[in-house]
């Protein structure tokens, strides 16, 4: 029962945020400043760490694939193609979302938790400002934009890194490697990656905000909320990734 509530509550937050966003669109009352701020916090500030991590991950995956291919096929000309498919379908959306969950999820849960224990949330009610409008919608849009943008950037970085490694360590011409790069990748894969990043970008803020809004009083409560937010978001990312994979790519 408790487990169900932990999923139900973020879902509830999502629904009210969606309604809140649509109604604020119709009323033309967009909290542009808050949204810009959240996108900045979530996306722009995460670019370095995510670029770096994705670069390293795709480097490792190319080298690993190359080893496998050499063992089995005695040549590794198709490595970039395999590696890019893996990156687009799995690595880029999931790793980006995981990093974002640990960076942004924790901060959302902690920030909202502190707002709760310092009565700022009550204050919002007194000021007749909906916490959905003020807290959730900007964070949702921020995470959404951040996750989609960073996933795309990750894919780009993975492609560039792959060609770079091919030229530097595997003795291929960049052009050769580039030709092989897009061999197995289709627009369907790219669309799948976008769907994933949209799902994860929605999941992270609402799960985290759920823990923040329900955080127990005291600094321990805030710490617990932040930990739970990261742990639960990461777990849900993996589960949802499995679901999307089985719906999107499995025959």
């Amino acid at each position: 029962m408790r487990e169900w509530n932990q999923l139900e509550y973020p879902a509830l937050l999502f629904c009210s945020s969606f309604v809140g966003f649509v109604s604020s669109l119709t009323r033309r009352e967009i909290r542009g400043r808050e949204i810009i701020k959240q996108i900045y916090e979530c996306a722009v500030m995460s670019i370095p760490v995510i670029s770096f991590s994705l670069g390293i991950v795709s480097l490792m995956s190319v080298l690993e694939f190359s080893w496998h291919m050499r063992v089995v096929l005695r040549q590794d000309a198709l490595v970039p193609a395999f590696s890019l498919v893996l990156t687009i379908r799995e690595v880029a959306p999931v790793v980006t979302a995981m990093l974002l969950a640990s960076r942004v999820g924790a901060s959302i849960a902690a920030e909202i938790g502190v707002m709760k224990i310092t009565e700022q949330l009550d204050q919002l009610k007194l000021l007749a400002v909906s916490e959905v409008d003020y807290l959730l919608v900007p964070r949702w849009l921020g995470c959404l934009v951040a996750n989609v943008a960073l996933t795309l950037i990750s894919i780009g970085i993975a492609g560039v890194v792959t060609i770079f490694i091919g030229a530097r360590w595997m003795g291929y011409q960049p052009g050769e490697f580039y030709n092989s790069l897009l061999l197995f990748t289709t627009g369907y894969d790219l669309a799948g990656a976008l769907v994933k990043s949209l799902c994860f970008g929605t999941l992270i803020p609402f799960v985290s905000a759920g823990y923040g809004l329900r955080c127990a009083l005291g600094s321990q409560g805030v710490g617990e909320a932040a930990t739970q937010a990261v742990a639960r978001s990461s777990l849900l990312i993996i589960i949802i990734d499995l679901f999307i994979n089985s719906l999107w790519w499995m025959p």
């Binding site: 996108i39 722009v44 934009v145 795309l152 894919i155």
Partner: peptide
């Protein structure tokens, strides 16, 4: 920066497409 990021991502998407 947000504008740059958004434009860059849209550009990246078009390049991929």
């Amino acid at each position: 920066w947000v504008g740059t990021l958004v434009l860059f991502s849209v550009g990246l998407l078009l390049v991929f497409a």
